[in-house]
Simulated assay, not measured.
Amino acid sequence: MQVWDRRCLSTGEPAGILTGHLHGITHIDSRGDGRSFISNGKDQAIKLWDIRKMMSNAESYTARVPAWDYRYSRYPQQHNQLRHPHDQSLATYRGHSVLRTLIRCYFSPAYSTGQKYIYTGSYDSSVYIYDVVSGSLVEKLKGHQLAVRDCSWHPFDPALVSSSWDGRVAKWTSNPDCVQETSDVD
């Protein structure tokens, strides 16, 4: 992944490189602290990055992995074991699936959660919520019939909405015991 400094765009060169994803990136989200961000990749992984770990262009490494097209086929099982030999990410989150569309990922809101979660839609019609520190799956929200491409966590209230290829928008709210689907908008 190439990182660009907006102050130096006239040079035509990226400020540096971060390596770790094996296939293309579908979305990035900044933590807003000036150094951390996450990326969702076609390699079925979200990666947490620290911009201070990037390498110069001369030091960049590419991984040699077999090509496949995420738009038309399932992710090959044998690719699940592959890791970039020079992975610079701080953490990797796995479980969701990125197929046939560009699935987005986000940090949970600072005000209500302290950004301690990462959440994403998934081709398997669910919303995944991961713990940033442990990397464990905290919750898998099921209720859609087709791929969940995008979701959004309310900045102050304990509510999340997800949109799916099934044409539905679901609102999820939390109670002390679990997260529940509370309504649909058709």
Rank of each mutant, 00 (worst) to 15 (best):
W153G: 02
A15F: 05
P176L: 13
I103M: 03
D43F: 09
T19H: 02
T182N: 11
A67L: 15
Y119G: 01
H154V: 06
Y117I: 06
I129P: 00
T19V: 08
T19Q: 11
R6Y: 10
Y75R: 08
C105D: 09
N175A: 10
D50W: 00
K42W: 02
H27V: 01
H21L: 06
R100Q: 14
Q180N: 10
S134M: 09
H84M: 11
Q78C: 07
E139D: 06
N40I: 09
V65D: 10
K42E: 14
D50V: 03
Y70A: 04
E59K: 13
Y61V: 15
C151K: 02
R94V: 07
K53N: 15
S30Q: 05
K171F: 04
A91Y: 03
V132W: 08
R94G: 00
T11F: 05
G32N: 09
V98D: 03
R83D: 12
S39Q: 10
V161N: 03
R168H: 11
L18S: 05
Q115P: 04
V179P: 01
S97H: 01
Y128P: 00
D87W: 04
W4H: 10
D50Q: 05
T173L: 01
V133W: 00
G12I: 09
T101W: 08
Q180A: 09
Y130C: 02
D50I: 04
H86M: 13
D5Y: 01
D69P: 02
E59Q: 15
